[in-house]
């Protein structure tokens, strides 16, 4: 059996890649995908730990996350689409609606 540490390290690598992508990329769609990567990284961590702890809880949470991610993806893409239509751009530096 592959020790859970391997999975965890992979999960961390994936997560960090997600974070870096989130900060480097400028268009919303890519940033959105980076978020998905981070989500799946956590999923992987949950699964591996659940497996090693022999508990079902982690797997249940993964299902939750997948559902939430799915709906989030739907809503998020819709928002991005609308932003694109209205602003003609999805570059983050051009969108400052919430500036105080």
């Amino acid at each position: 059996m592959i020790p859970p540490n391997y999975f965890l390290i992979l999960s961390i690598i994936l997560f960090v890649l997600g974070v870096i992508a989130f900060f480097i990329k400028k268009d919303l769609l890519t940033m959105f995908m980076a978020v998905e990567v981070m989500l799946n990284a956590t999923n992987l961590a949950f699964l591996s730990l659940a497996r090693s702890a022999n508990s079902i809880d982690g797997q249940v949470i993964v299902f939750f996350i997948i559902t939430v991610a799915a709906s989030e993806a739907a809503v998020g893409l819709a928002i991005i689409l609308l932003v694109l239509r209205q602003k003609k751009t999805i570059k983050t530096e051009d969108i400052k609606l919430m500036k105080g």
């Binding site: 989130f22 900060f23 940033m31 983050t92 530096e93 969108i95 400052k96 919430m98 500036k99 105080g100």
Partner: peptide, 18 residues
């Protein structure tokens, strides 16, 4: 004064979050 921290840029928020 506090509203100056609200740049409206996602990157800034994410950075603070990080």
């Amino acid at each position: 004064i506090l509203s100056y921290f609200q740049s409206g840029l996602i990157k800034d928020y994410a950075l603070i979050f990080l």
